[in-house]
Design a binder for these strands. Structure first.
Lengths: 228, 228
DNA sequence: TACTGTGAAGCTATTCACAGCG
DNA sequence: CGCTGTGAATAGCTTCACAGTA
């Protein structure tokens, strides 16, 4: 009986969410020819505290050397493996408005580990056009295309009104991970993961803190100080 | 006599990050003419548990009615106020590649509380073009434009190599909040807030969980054979 | 010596469960 | 009664501080 060292490790969600940052910092270091890095240096490059970095990495195993630091290439490889980037994940993008086109262009050449295998839209004006080197298909063929091309991750860049329907169709044919850019909540069965990216949410969060920062005398337009 | 309920309350970061979701759910309800909503219903609409919703709202004050629920319009207004959306925040977008253009178009008409007052790019081919009804200016004029137009929030959609420099220039002329779409860590002085949106980070997180779901050596295969 | 990996402490967030009120 | 608001319990995350080690 052989125990896989990673098999029974539970990696905390908060740690998983930071692994990509560490990986990017390590890639930058590797490009600059750095062979070894301390937790202090890597933490700075990734924008976290060194104690947090060490705790995070300890969940993956003991890949550091006491008194020295971490091997850049080796640690990058371990994190890549942990994140599942040693394989190529087939991705489909649905909705090729402004945002969908930008995502298609970005994913087309800027990311390892992912391959865009389908672009789908509902608008007949858009279907058939070439975007980022790929022909846009009809969303009517979603099920067939997802199955044929083994899509694992679905990206939704449609208007909010269509997002749940597209999501349901993804889920029905076995897509287990969805990245949602539509400004709405998606409901999915247990076992399916959804992550949401939302520009206006981010701006609103910034506005909250900006408001707290702005001294009272600098306050801008008071829209609603009307006496009843 | 009633003391200002929000004046000295510390609202937890996790709560702030969810307020936009609640606001969106409330806006949807208001559009459908719903006047009152229970924590259970609103929580479902926002994709959280009702206990969490009630705890979150309790940080804003007591805006519910026991035995009844929350007034939709009233709660929406309170959250808007708390988020600082009763004023318009002037936003500048730097970098008008695919993504920057998509952001400009989105912000141009899809969001209340924010007004795009400047689009800036470095490329002379792009400067002078009209995007989403606004003429692109030169990034050389960043300082002047930020000051003249009172920019409070800077959006960075440049390549990673330019992002820190643009950020520094924003900060130097008083921009206190930055939304960063470039795949890199920005360092800023204390008191400046940065939020990051990163497509490949999100995909990598999904890949991690997707990999965990797919049993070890089980290759990803179509769920259904292709029908003849 | 200079660093990692980690027990323990402290802090933040979530959830339970029900008192309290309309 | 039905629902909110919250004390208390729990779970999860971060930080400290240092034992342990190449």
């Amino acid at each position: 009986m052989i125990a896989d060292p990673a098999a029974h490790r539970e990696i905390p969600d908060a740690t998983v969410a930071r692994l990509p940052q560490y990986l990017r910092a390590l890639s930058d270091l590797a490009e600059r020819g750095v062979a070894s890095v301390s937790s202090e240096e890597l933490a700075t490059a990734a924008g976290v505290r060194s104690a947090k970095l060490r705790r995070d990495l300890s969940h993956l195993g003991s890949y550091g050397v006491r008194g020295v630091g971490y091997g850049v290439e080796m640690l990058a490889h371990e994190i890549s493996r942990e994140l599942g980037l040693t394989q190529e994940w087939p991705v489909a993008i649905v909705g090729l408005g402004n945002l969908g086109q930008a995502l298609a262009a970005y994913l087309g050449f800027a990311t390892r580990g992912f391959q865009v295998v389908a672009l789908l839209d509902r608008d007949p004006e858009v279907v058939g056009r070439e975007i980022a080197g790929m022909i846009v298909g009809s969303v009517d063929d979603l099920e067939r295309i997802v199955i044929e091309r083994g899509v694992a991750i679905g990206v939704i860049a449609t208007p909010a009104a269509s997002a749940q329907q597209v999501c349901d169709r993804f889920v029905a044919v076995g897509v287990g991970s969805v990245l949602n850019f539509a400004p709405c909540v998606l409901s999915v069965p247990q076992g399916v993961d959804v992550r949401k990216v939302d520009l206006s949410t981010e701006l609103q969060i910034l506005a909250f803190y900006e408001q707290r920062k702005t001294p009272a005398d600098q306050e801008r337009v008071p829209l609603l100080e009307v006496a009843p």
